[in-house]
Design a protein around this nucleic acid. Structure first.
Length: 823
DNA sequence: AGCACGCCGACT
DNA sequence: GTCGGCGTGCTC
């Protein structure tokens, strides 16, 4: 058995197994693996085409099944509850055959027959969530023990998840309204399931006759040396090890085996090898008073082993990471582990290096790892060989056995919500996990979500503030530029006069510049001057973006690409024009205006090949690049002291999204981008171009006034009955027939509405209405929302009504609890 | 999610 | 007369 067994098997699972011991003596004729009975039956199967016995009748099958469970009961056998990777709310119960009794355990996966049809349905993979006596199932109300099917096979040598993770995943399934098995399947990385990075290898150990033969001196010279090497090793060893140790060929080991002097052992072994990167040493810093105060509060909770969520509100450059690291140091001293979640996009080599410099054993979990790497890190974590786990959203499921602390950095980032099933938010899952483990959770952000801020106001979270930057550096002044009357912008330029002058001055002064624009491509629309229509994607309700490098118009919502027709497909006029500015056009404009500057563009189009991201940032760090322009990618986490100017080319793109959180996102974005400058004594400035400079989100961001912004925004949220004052659950319907989708949306909304009324549940139904993107990848989309103060009411309403909704057909639906994406 | 079951239209 | 459409409802 591999080491993982010991560390991953859980108290509850052990207790369960204990309860089932001692097992009754096995009758000798019970079919153990490899027994003649089994080989006989499989041989029979292979020849079955010629001598098939007559098919048993339904009665015979039923009688056999009834007998199976009666025998099972008489023999004090067990059943296993199994959950499958399907949107099913219930676990399904299976008989555990005698020969699998010792292997079966909660947290392991099994193959089971599922569904009706010939041969009792298809074979599916599921997770065992419980093992219990068959009588317990038989005594359940409505149980049909005679209809139980039997487990085919146990897949894992050791549980993949422990009892705590089983419970956490069950909670997620319940809260996010999806199947337990769906959660478990996505919690365990694919590489871990396939044991990627490990091999079943053959090892040799001495037998008693082998030892005797060595003592008796009845071996040849080479055999004697090999035998001695095997015995001296003190543990099973590989043949090539023996060969090099005894200076012989591996054939000698084989002959020892044939003679019965050594025997083979098969062991699953780690075969991954990673280079250790050299890490430069770290100079300890002196904590600021603010950092120390925040830290003291966190340490008190750590020492008291109590759950608490801390909202660490720290302006950019205030040294939140230093607080995290010192808190983790304390946790590591107790021999416990910490999980640090960062947005995927911030999971750069620089971020990882920062933790590797300060901790001995850091595991990293993110989407760019190979299966073998991820599986290796997962096994290291489970075995307790890791102090700190740094990872993206799903790292919240890291199998730490002695969790001491969880940190979520940039808590406001929407990437912490998964946008496929299970649609969980890592913050909510972390809260649950920490509460159960009795450990603190730290949420860090310069611009906390309104949900978190509100929780802090209510006292559910404890607020810690870092309002000053380290080194007494001021926050950079932010200039809002009204571009409505700018002569250059009116000519179709992206960069107005003021920003352009500022860029010029910054470069002449030897500084570097970051220009941010959240639209990739060359022009975001192809527009007909004659009829005013834009070129649309044939499959989506989205206008096509012109990518000049490809010479094609591209849909950013699906894979569609096309050439641009000569004539407008709507009116036939030859008046098509590329309008608006994306990063590609911005790059061209900047090159034209600043011909002597070195320019680099960073967006998902220019960063296709792996490593290019890091390469550009390294060049930028070494001042080989004067102007870095790009999308979201350059807004996060970059910390370059020589950046003296940041320009937000168009603050309005974010603001005009059809989303109730557009204001919040705009504020966050400006604050975040502004944080990229003024990080040294050289100072820095920020220019924000907008056509709505009076918009509160923009005005407050320019004033670095988070408190003012949340006060405004919370008032609006209250007026709109929107989170954080209510919980929402969004139901999205889609299908190829617009009328059918609309009809189904109405039916579902009405059914829920009626049920809420009759059950007296305080849940409102908002909608239905077409989605903001009314058509996506050929499907029409409608949505409606359930809104309640208490999410339990939403859940209970949905759970009672949902089973009545038809599935299949050409309209399907998804449920999104606490939605962030409103498209 | 599949997928087998059942009840209504165009073909030999 | 049947084959096959896809709406409906289970799956231990």
């Amino acid at each position: 058995m591999v080491a993982r067994t010991a560390t991953l098997s859980t108290d509850a699972a052990d207790a369960k197994m204990d309860r089932m011991e001692p097992s009754p003596p096995h009758p000798p004729e019970a079919d153990a693996p490899g027994s003649p009975l089994e080989t006989g039956s499989s041989a029979g199967k292979e020849q079955g085409a010629l001598f098939d016995p007559p098919e048993p009748t339904a009665e015979e099958i039923a009688a056999g099944a009834a007998m199976a469970w009666e025998i099972a009961a008489a023999e004090d056998r067990v059943v296993a509850d199994v959950v499958l990777n399907k949107p099913l709310m219930d676990a399904y119960t299976y008989l555990v055959p005698e020969n699998l009794r010792d292997e079966i355990a909660p947290g392991r996966r099994v193959r089971v027959p599922f569904g009706r049809g010939p041969r009792g349905g298809r074979s599916e993979t599921g997770f065992v969530v419980a093992v219990r006596p068959v009588e317990e199932y038989a005594n359940e109300r409505g149980s049909k023990p005679e209809r139980l099917k039997t487990i085919d096979r146990v897949l894992d040598e050791a549980p993949l998840v422990d009892a705590k993770m089983l419970e956490l995943s069950r909670w997620i399934a319940e809260y996010y309204l999806c199947g337990w098995g769906q959660v478990l399947s996505s919690v365990v990385p694919a590489g871990v399931k396939r044991n990627a990075g490990t091999r079943e290898l053959v090892f040799y150990r001495p037998t008693e006759t082998g030892r005797a033969a060595l003592d008796a001196g009845s071996l040849t010279k080479k055999q004697r040396a090999a035998m001695a090497a095997i015995i001296d090793a003190g543990e099973p060893v590989r043949a090539d090890y023996v060969a090099s140790k005894a200076d012989c060929g591996v054939g000698v080991v084989t002959s020892l085996k044939h003679k019965g002097f050594a025997e083979q052992v098969r062991k699953r072994t780690d075969v991954t090898e990673f280079d250790d990167v050299a890490i430069e040493p770290w100079e300890e810093l002196v904590a600021t008073d603010e950092q120390q105060a925040a830290l003291d509060t966190i340490l008190a909770a750590l020492r008291g082993q109590e759950y608490a969520t801390f909202l660490l509100h720290g302006v950019t450059g205030s040294g939140k990471t230093e607080v995290y690291i010192r808190a983790i140091k304390e946790v590591v001293e107790y021999g416990r582990q910490a999980i640090v979640l960062v947005p995927e996009i911030a999971l750069t080599p620089q971020t990882i290096r920062r933790f590797r410099q300060r901790f001995e054993r850091v595991a990293v979990l993110h989407s760019h790892l190979s299966d073998a790497e991820r599986s290796k890190h997962w096994r290291d974590i489970a075995a307790g060989r890791v102090e700190v786990v740094v990872g993206a959203r799903s790292a919240i499921f890291a199998p730490c056995q002695h969790l001491g602390l969880v940190i979520i950095d940039e808590e406001h980032e929407s990437t912490f919500k998964q946008d496929s099933v299970p649609r969980y938010h890592a913050r909510e899952v972390a809260e649950k996990r920490c509460r159960e483990a009795g450990v603190p959770l730290i949420l860090g952000s310069a611009t906390p979500t309104l949900e978190s801020w509100h929780a802090a106001q209510e006292g559910r979270y404890r607020l810690l503030s870092l309002l000053r930057r380290v080194g007494k550096l001021p926050l950079p002044p932010v200039v809002t530029v009204d571009v409505r009357n700018d002569p250059q912008v009116r000519k179709g330029r992206a960069i107005g006069r003021q920003l352009s002058n500022a860029v010029k001055a910054a470069i002449e002064d030897g500084g570097q510049v970051i220009l941010f624009l959240n639209l990739r491509g060359f022009s975001p629309a192809v527009w007909c001057r004659a009829c005013g229509a834009s070129l649309m994607c044939p499959d989506c309700d989205v206008s096509l973006t012109w990518h000049r490098d490809k010479g094609r118009a591209v849909c950013h919502s699906c894979a569609h690409e096309q050439t641009v027709p000569r004539a407008c497909p709507g009116c036939g006029a030859h008046e098509l024009k590329y309008v608006g500015v994306g990063t590609q056009k911005l790059e061209e404009e900047v090159k034209q205006v600043f011909p002597d500057a070195t320019i680099a563009r960073m967006d998902s189009d220019s960063m296709r090949k792996p490593g290019s991201h890091d390469e550009v940032l390294t060049r930028f760090r070494h001042s080989e690049i004067d102007i870095l322009l790009g999308t979201q990618m350059i807004a996060k986490g970059l910390d370059f002291p020589n950046v003296t100017l940041v320009g937000v080319v168009d603050a309005d793109t974010q603001l005009h999204q059809p989303d109730p959180r557009a204001g919040e996102r705009t504020f966050q974005l400006i604050a975040q981008v502004a944080g990229r400058t003024g990080r040294s004594s050289r100072g820095g400035r920020v220019y924000v171009q907008s056509s709505n400079p009076a918009e509160p989100a923009i005005r407050r961001a320019a004033g670095h006034d988070y408190l003012g912004f949340v006060a405004d925004e919370l008032r609006d949220r209250w007026d709109m009955s929107y989170p954080p004052y209510r919980r929402l659950c969004r139901v999205i319907l889609r299908g190829p027939d617009e009328a059918a989708v609309k009809r189904r949306a109405n039916e579902m909304a009405n059914a829920l509405s009626a049920a809420a009324k009759s059950r007296n549940l305080p849940v409102q139904i908002l909608g239905p209405a077409p989605c903001a993107v009314a058509r996506l990848q050929k499907n029409w989309r409608f949505h409606f929302q359930l809104s309640a103060e208490n999410p339990a009411d939403v859940r209970s309403l949905w759970r009672t009504v949902e089973p009545e909704f038809p599935t299949g057909g050409d309209v399907d639906f998804v449920v999104d609890m606490d939605p962030l994406n409103m498209r």
